Simulated assay, not measured.
Amino acid sequence: MVTETEDPPIVKVTPLQQMLASCTGAILTSLMVTPLDVVKIRLQAQRNPFPKGKCFMYSNGLMDHMCICEEAGSKAWYEKPGNFRGTLDAFLKIIRNEGIKSLWSGLPPTLVMAIPATVVYFTCYDQLTAHLRSKLGENETRIPIVAGILARFGAVSVISPLELIRTKMQSKKFSYKELRQFISQKVSEDGWVSLWKGWAPTILRDVPFSAMYWYNYEILKKWLCEKSGLYEPTFMISFTSGALSGSFAAIVTLPFDVVKTQKQTQLWTSESHKISVPLNMSTWVIMKNIVAKNGLSGLFTGLIPRLIKVAPACAIMISTYEFGKAFFLRQNLRRQPLE
């Protein structure tokens, strides 16, 4: 009599372990990429000093944030005087004159939002991918696109109101009571949808970016593994795949990034200076205005700085995330009882 043997249980990385891996990746990415943006902002401020109420974009490598100057000539990190001849010169002089910690100025408040957003995004992507593969099969090429779109859509929608509140708190010293009054006033005047101001251009930039990024990443990772004769990707394969797929997605979605920056800058400059500017223009109208004023190249303003920031950020984040998942998978295998 032949008895059927049960298949051994499949060992997987748990959602909590995925969250820990993505959290580690978010912190490491922020620590390594933030100095690039700090130097970029200091160089911009040197060429064109920031007046009171001036808005500028700050990024920790994972998320863009709107910052507002409180006072002209203040000693804030983005307005400290400097005579920099270039990026490397700025790095060296900031370290020598202000200490190495100055390269991570402004990091703590952005991490408060970047870490939750990244954890939600990467964990949702992996969970959605696993679910879709169980339904559609392992070789379905559309899975990374669908999972990437849904994961990014959810992450942006959750974080968008927090971005609005955080930016408002930067523009002026607010007590929690005043902040609550501000939110209540916005909701009573314009409805709950007002808390998602800037959501549309962010979605138009981030959702296509996510779809292209994950599709290209999975294709490149699989191809490099086959070329190397490996079943699982190494750290360098994940790093290279992340950098290349992130660069391609950044180039294609740059026009929507330009629109998002312009829309948010107009919003907060208007509130700071009480200037009446047309804030309700659609994304397409803003794009047409940019093309009419600066030509098609105007939609790709800041391409090189964006690539310099996005490529290493994507590479560091995904390689750290994959490394973390592989580490937890090995731990789970060791804990599995021997049959």
Rank of each mutant, 00 (worst) to 15 (best):
E4R: 12
D7W: 07
D7R: 13
K12A: 09
P15Q: 08
P15C: 09
L16W: 14
S22M: 06
I27A: 08
L28N: 02
S30E: 04
V33S: 01
P35R: 00
D37K: 03
I41M: 07
Q46V: 08
P49L: 09
C55A: 09
M57P: 00
D64H: 09
H65N: 10
H65Y: 14
C67T: 05
I68N: 00
A76E: 13
N83S: 12
A90F: 03
E98S: 11
E98L: 11
I100M: 12
L103K: 01
G106A: 06
P116R: 08
T118Y: 03
V119S: 04
T123W: 03
C124W: 02
Q127M: 15
L128C: 06
L128D: 04
L132V: 02
S134H: 15
G148E: 02
A151G: 03
E163D: 09
I165G: 05
K168M: 10
K168D: 12
S175A: 09
Q181T: 13
F182G: 00
K186H: 07
K186G: 06
E189N: 07
G191E: 07
L195D: 05
W196H: 09
K197Q: 12
R205Q: 12
P208K: 01
F209P: 00
W214F: 14
L220F: 15
W223E: 10
E232C: 09
T234C: 05
T234K: 00
F235Q: 06
M236I: 13
I237N: 02
T240M: 08
T240K: 08
F248V: 15
L254D: 00
V258N: 03
K263V: 10
T265Q: 09
Q266A: 15
W268T: 03
K274H: 15
N280V: 09
N280P: 01
W284A: 12
M287P: 02
K288P: 07
A292N: 15
I308H: 02
A313R: 00
I316R: 00
Y321R: 06
Y321H: 10
K325D: 04
Q331W: 09
L333H: 14
P337M: 07
